[in-house]
């Protein structure tokens, strides 16, 4: 039985197949959670919540081959919601959580990424971290491939601006 066949059975409501699909995708999902939330505890909680949401909505998956992208999206949406909530309650705690040996460059990049809109962050994540094909992103977002490309282009431009601004300020 191929992977696609398992996904199809999961969509049809088969519990065993659902769990198999989650096993196949767990690593990617956990990395996504960690990329956004930056600590193990929150990432594990995100896993639980996303599995829960996936199970409740599995029947809505129309195209089995996009199940990974679909799951990643649920995870990203959840993480971004969590980050918004966290912002209300904690002050700057996140800064301490980022380990120092990331190097300054990465810290700057992460700061620059935070300045992007949520939609832009998701796009960056799919393209550069999950290595999702532009064609697949276009299908998921229901926009033409050209639009995906021009959005990515705009994002890189914004990132460069943020990074050079930061650099210039450091030189002053």
């Amino acid at each position: 039985m191929g992977d696609l066949e398992i996904v199809k059975r999961a969509i049809a409501g088969d519990d065993e197949s659902f769990l198999l699909v989650m096993q196949v995708n767990k690593e990617g999902l956990y990395r996504t959670a960690f990329a956004f939330l930056r600590n193990e505890h929150d990432a594990l909680e995100a896993m639980q919540e996303v599995i829960y949401r996936a199970y409740k909505n599995m029947h809505k998956v129309k195209e089995p081959s996009y199940v990974k992208t679909w799951l990643t999206r649920i995870m990203m949406n959840y993480c971004q919601d969590q980050l918004k909530k966290k912002k209300r309650f904690t002050i700057n705690e996140t800064l301490n959580e980022i380990s120092i040996d990331d190097g300054t460059v990465q810290l700057e990049l992460q700061e620059a990424l935070k300045k992007l809109s949520e939609q832009e962050q998701q796009l960056v994540y799919m393209k550069y971290f999950q290595d999702t094909k532009i064609k697949d992103i276009a299908v998921m977002e229901n926009i033409p491939e050209g639009t995906v490309k021009s959005r990515l282009h705009k994002i890189l431009k914004t990132l460069r601006q943020h990074l050079t601004e930061k650099g210039e300020m450091d030189h002053v």
Binding site: D15, M22, K26, E40, L44, M47, I51
Partner: peptide, 18 residues
């Protein structure tokens, strides 16, 4: 990746949904 804990989280989420 804390595999065991991830598997635990998967099961918890699954059982909650059920």
């Amino acid at each position: 990746i804390p595999t065991e804990m991830v598997d635990g989280a998967i099961l918890q989420g699954f059982e909650r949904a059920k």
